[in-house]
Amino acid sequence: MMGFWEVTLSLIGGLKYTCLIFALTLVLALPLGLVISFGSMSKFKPLGYVVKTFVWIIRGVPLMLQVIIFFYVPGFLLGTPVLSRFASVIAAFVINYACYFSEIYRGGIESIAKGQYEAGQVLGMTKSQIFFKIILMQVVKRILAPMSNEVITLVKDTALARVIMIVEVIQAAQNFAGYGLMWPLFYTAVFYLAFVGILTLVFGYFEKKLSYYKV
């Protein structure tokens, strides 16, 4: 009979992958999303259309399917495996989340009053100075709430990695089902709740930290 500690240790082993997918996706998708949002807002129309179509496809196809595609399709086309399981998951997650982030960024950026740009312009600032010194911090404050939603969703989406046999928390628990144990699967909820609880605190901290000004 599997003991409680044995299951816990095994789930913590899975949690390692959950955390890794979460952290890598966040670190890479946050900046990539900004690049994509610039693309979709580009004054050069063709680029705008291409980027918007790309975002439509990525947001329109299930993430689970995208993980499968990244893992299998390059291999089929080239006749040899291209990306490892883990790398496929990261690639799919980063691109998927960057597209969602890009739309949140776009909403935030477009909500900043024109007068803020103009104030920077008449003070002789360059476009990038205006964006990074004036606009960005205001955008960050505006998008904090929708971003916390998206980031919390990411925590739970990491479970999709098991579709190509990455042993994250859920898969680690499911392995016990083979021995007739169902409770580890329900036990995983505790891990997710703790994870999301910490994130909620972190976002609350940032929200408080940025409460000294209004936008």
Partner: peptide, 18 residues
């Protein structure tokens, strides 16, 4: 550079809130 010849005070102030 040309803009620096002029200063502009806006109707809606447009101070940087942060």
């Amino acid at each position: 550079e040309m803009r620096l010849h002029f200063g502009l005070v806006f109707q809606s102030f447009n101070l940087f809130p942060q």
